[in-house]
C-alpha cells in the first residue's frame, strides 16, 4: 500500500468536528425536550429552519447581525412556549403515538408557514466575521464555520454547567427522573415543561443562525433535523453528554465516509453513513452510549 494520506484525513476530521459541534447543539435541543417532557420532537429541524428564517428576515430588513440573532432567539423562545402551551400540553398523558404525530404535523406546518411568511427564495445571513479563510496549520476553514464551532462550544459548555450544577438544572433532571415525585417535592412540573421547550428554542435559534450563515436560508435547512436522529440514538436520547459526543462522532463519520467512499460509489455517502451508524447502535446498544438504563438493584 502507498502512503496513507494523513493530511487529507486530518482535513476531513477537522471539518467533521466543526459540523459535529453544530449537530451537537441542535441535538441538544432535542435532548432537552426528550429528557424533561418525554416527547420525541420530530420538528427539531424545522425549529432550526424557522429560526434561520427569522434571522434572515430581520437581517434582510437592514438591521445588523446581532439584532437579527437576538430577535431570532426571542422569537424561538416565544414559539417554544407557545407550542408547548397550545399543542403539547393538551396531549399530556395521551400516549407516545399521539405526541409523535403531533410533532410530525407541527414540522409540516412550520415548513409551510415559513415559506408563506418569508417566501421560497434562498436568503443569506452574513456573520460579521469576513470571508477570508482562516489558516489552522494544515487546514484552512471559512471563518463562519469556525465562528459557528466556537459559538457551539460556548453554548454546549453553558448548558452542561446549567444542567449539572445549577439548582434549576437539578430540578429539571428531577422532573425527567420522575414527574410524580418531582411534584411531591414542590416542583411545578408544567413550568419545567415550558422551560424545556423555551430552551430548545434558544438552541435552535443559535443553530439556525449559524447553519443559515453557512448554507444560506431556505426550507432545505430543516434537513439538518434528519441528522439529529443518528446523533441522539448514538449518544442516548436523554443524555446531554451523549448529544455532544454523538454529534462529534456523526460529524466526523459522515465526513470521513464522504471523503473516502464518495469517489468510489459516486456520492451520497454523507447522507446515509450516519444512519448506518444509527442502525448498528440500535442493534448492539439501543439506549445509546450515555443513555439512561433502568437502574435495577439485585
Amino acid at each position: 500500500m502507498g502512503g496513507f494520506d494523513w493530511g487529507f484525513t486530518f482535513v476531513l476530521v477537522v471539518n467533521g468536528v466543526m459540523v459535529g459541534l453544530m449537530y451537537a447543539l441542535i441535538a441538544l435541543g432535542f435532548v432537552l425536550i426528550c429528557k424533561a417532557t418525554d416527547v420525541i420532537n420530530f420538528a427539531q429541524g424545522e425549529f432550526v429552519m424557522f429560526a434561520a428564517f427569522i434571522a434572515a428576515g430581520v437581517a434582510g430588513a437592514g438591521l445588523n447581525f446581532w439584532v437579527a440573532a437576538l430577535v431570532s432567539i426571542i422569537g424561538m423562545v416565544a414559539l417554544g412556549f407557545g407550542l408547548e402551551r397550545v399543542v403539547l400540553r393538551p396531549l399530556i398523558g395521551r400516549g407516545i403515538i399521539a405526541v409523535v404525530m403531533a410533532t410530525i404535523g407541527l414540522a409540516a406546518v412550520l415548513r409551510g408557514v415559513a415559506v408563506l411568511i418569508f417566501g421560497p427564495d434562498t436568503r443569506a445571513i452574513t456573520m460579521p466575521v469576513g470571508d477570508m479563510p482562516i489558516n489552522l496549520g494544515i487546514v484552512s476553514v471559512p471563518p463562519a464555520q469556525l465562528a459557528g464551532a466556537v459559538v457551539s462550544i460556548i453554548f454546549l459548555a453553558v448548558f452542561s454547567w446549567f444542567f449539572l450544577k445549577s439548582r434549576v438544572g437539578v430540578a429539571m433532571r428531577a422532573v425527567a427522573d420522575s414527574q410524580q415525585v418531582a411534584m411531591a417535592m414542590g416542583i411545578n412540573v408544567r413550568r419545567y415543561f415550558a422551560l424545556a421547550w423555551a430552551m430548545a428554542g434558544v438552541v435552535s435559534a443559535i443553530g439556525g443562525v449559524v447553519w443559515g450563515a453557512m448554507l444560506g436560508v431556505d426550507n432545505q435547512i430543516a434537513l439538518v433535523g434528519l441528522k439529529v436522529f443518528p446523533v441522539v440514538i448514538l449518544g442516548g436520547l436523554d443524555s446531554i453528554v451523549g448529544a455532544i459526543v454523538g454529534g462529534l462522532i456523526i460529524g466526523v463519520v459522515e465526513n470521513l465516509a464522504a471523503g473516502y467512499f464518495d469517489p468510489v460509489v459516486g456520492g451520497g455517502t454523507k447522507d446515509f453513513a450516519p444512519y448506518l451508524v444509527m442502525l448498528i447502535v440500535l442493534m448492539i446498544r439501543p439506549e445509546g452510549m450515555f443513555g439512561r438504563r433502568r437502574i435495577e438493584r439485585v
Binding site: V170, R173, A174, D177, S178, V181, A182, A184, M185, I187
Partner: peptide, 23 residues
Amino acid sequence: QVFEGRRTFENLTVEENLVAGAH
C-alpha cells in the same frame, strides 16, 4: 408526602436529591 416504595430520583446523586427536595 413521602411515597411508599422509596421513590428517590434514582439517576441523581444523594446530594442532588436533597437539593431537589429544597426546591
